[in-house]
Structures are given as structure tokens and as C-alpha cells.
Computed example of a mutant assay.
Amino acid sequence: MNLSQQRRSFIKNLGLVGLGASISPIMLQSCGGTSTQTVLEEITKELFFKISLAQWSLHKALFAGDLDNLDFTAYTKKEFDIHAVEYVSAFFKDKAKDMSYLGEMKKRASDNGVESVLIMVDDEGYLGDLDTAARNQSVDNHKKWVEAAQFLGCHSIRVNAFGRGSAEEVAAAAIDGLRSLSEFALDYDINILVENHGGYSSDGQWLANVIQSTGMANCGTLPDFGNFCIKRSDGSEWGGECLEEYDRYKGVAEMMPFAKGVSAKTYDFDADGNCIETDYERMLQIVKDAGYTGYIGIEYEGSNLSEMEGIQATKALLERVGMSMD
């Protein structure tokens, strides 16, 4: 067995190393005596994507005050050895124009060698609102986040394409709102990305058509491996029981041609460290076949593991599956 085969066999057998299990000398013997550092370096070299951490993975700790937004980048590097982050606007929602605060965020990211990838923006109105005035207000509300993203060194902001009306009506409104915001973002070299986040946006074909119809190269998608409920009992995007769900593999495949980011959603894991709700081998193959080589952001939302354990399990899964792919 050559070194590459040994390394692959080792990684496949490693399982949930991220859950705190140490790499023992006995385990290293199965990898030809290769050092831990060498093994981990080879993992990074052979993955077709890069790994980032979505801040929402730590939303419980952040909302509880156990972790401060300013400490997020240092915590990400120290606890998970991840060197890229995706911020969530909710954790500094009143700081979008506070240059002193943003400056401190930028400094801490730089000091820790952590790249700021994007900002996930919520609660700024519906970009697919059928009311023109309300839609334009939503566009204006998002502009400060475009400016903040540029300052922090991000390449994108993630937005929502929500609206109330028929699929055709909301699509037309969303195309207008997204085009307007994307035109503004051009001068800042920022992308406007839409995630499948409930309602019509979780219909992969609907969203792909909306993005394509904007005619803007900086308007794209952020496919999430979860979030494919298109109809809930209370008519909301997230709240009620899911009544109709879109096929996640079909949806991601439809969104990938426009993807400038990807979210690795996880909730629960089996005894072998595999995600229960999503076949990661199948899903990562879809991502790879699309020619995507950018960041895949870890977004753990489960409750059976702690946030730290869930993040570590998701990272281990991404590395293990990614390493096994040809």
C-alpha cells in the first residue's frame, strides 16, 4: 500500500476524530508512521474545497452571552483549527455602520489569520416584496451590510428572497430587488447570494430562474444542504410544521451553477459519524461535479450534540468524505 492509499485508509478509519479523540501512535502506524501534522496537511491538500465556519453554528452560545461576537474568529481558530468564518448579522445587528466596532472585528480576524468570507443578513425586509416601496426599502436596508462586508474583507453577503404572493409574482419582485441590490454592490466588489431558506426560495428551479433572470454576474446562490421546506402549516418560512419538502439533492444541483458559497447543514449523526438527514457522499459529489472549489461553511443546528461537538463532527465528516473522493 502506497502512502496515498495508507493516508486514505487512515482517514476513513478515523471517524469522529473531531469529537476529541486523539490520534494515537497505534493509529499512525496504520498510516505508515506518518506524523499527525503530515496527515492533517495532506487532508487539506487533497480536499477539493475549503472549510469555513458559519457563525450560526454557535448561535446558542452567542445568544446566551457565553461567546462574544468579537471573540468568534479567535475561538474558531483555537477550538476547531478553522481559518475562515461566515458572520451572521444578528450578532452585530446594530454595528453595521460602527466603524470602530467593525475595525476591531477586522483586526481580530487578521491577528488570528482568519479570513472573513461573508455576512449572512436577516431581518432587513423582503427583497421579493410585491409592494415596490417596501421592496426598495429592503434594498436600502441591505446596503449598509454590503459596505460592512467590503470593509471586513468578505466577498459576499447572503440575503433572502422572500415575498408574499404567487410564485410568479414573488419571482418578478425578487428579480427586481436582487438586481437593484446587486447593481449597488458592484462598486464594492461584493456578491449578493440567495440561500434556500424557506418558501419559494427552497424550490431549486424557482431560485435558479430568479438568479439567472437578474442578469447580474455578482448575484448568485448559497446552496444549503438542508432548508428545503417549501410549505409550512402556518405559511411561514421557518415556523410551522413542514407540509411539503423539495428534494435536497435536486435542489442543490439546480443551484450549484450559480453558487459562490455552500452551507454544510447537519443535525444528527449515526454511530459511524455520518449525517443522518443528508448523504454527504452524494451531496459533495454534486458540489464537486459542478466544478466548485470555494468554501463550504459548517452549519450545525442539532441538539443531540453540543455546538462544539456538532461542529467538530461536521468538520470530521467533510474531511473524511472529501478525502475519499476521486
Rank of each mutant, 00 (worst) to 15 (best):
C154D: 03
Y249H: 12
V117I: 14
C31T: 10
A253M: 09
R282P: 11
E307G: 05
A264T: 07
V114Y: 09
A109H: 09
D279Y: 07
K231L: 14
R232V: 06
Y292C: 01
D189F: 02
K12P: 01
I298V: 11
I119W: 00
D279V: 07
Q205T: 14
V321C: 01
V194R: 04
V121L: 05
N136A: 03
Y267V: 14
S57Y: 06
E183A: 07
D131N: 14
R108H: 09
N209T: 13
K265M: 10
W238C: 10
A21G: 11
G261W: 01
E195T: 04
I119M: 03
M283E: 11
N2S: 12
Y280A: 08
R164T: 14
I26W: 13
L3P: 01
G235K: 05
H83S: 12
E281W: 02
A313E: 06
L284M: 15
I211R: 03
G33F: 10
M323A: 13
Y101A: 01
D129I: 03
G33Q: 09
I192V: 14
G128E: 02
G128I: 04
Q137V: 06
G235I: 03
A217R: 08
A149P: 01
C229D: 12
Y126V: 04
F162Y: 15
L243N: 12
Q29L: 13
G239H: 13
M325V: 07
I43F: 09
F225Q: 09
K107F: 10
G177Q: 02
F225L: 13
G153C: 11
Y292T: 02
K144Q: 15
K265H: 11
G215M: 12
I192Q: 05
G204Q: 04
E281Y: 10
E41C: 06
C229H: 12
Y292I: 03
L40P: 01
A253C: 10
L186C: 11
G220V: 00
A167L: 09
V146W: 02
E244P: 13
G20V: 00
S35D: 08
Q55E: 15
T266E: 06
S100N: 12
S57L: 04
D98H: 03
G33R: 01
S202T: 04
Y249M: 10
D81H: 13
D131W: 06
S156I: 11
Q6E: 13
C275E: 07
G239E: 13
L14S: 08
R164C: 04
S57V: 05
S180A: 13
G235C: 01
H155T: 09
N69D: 10
S156K: 11
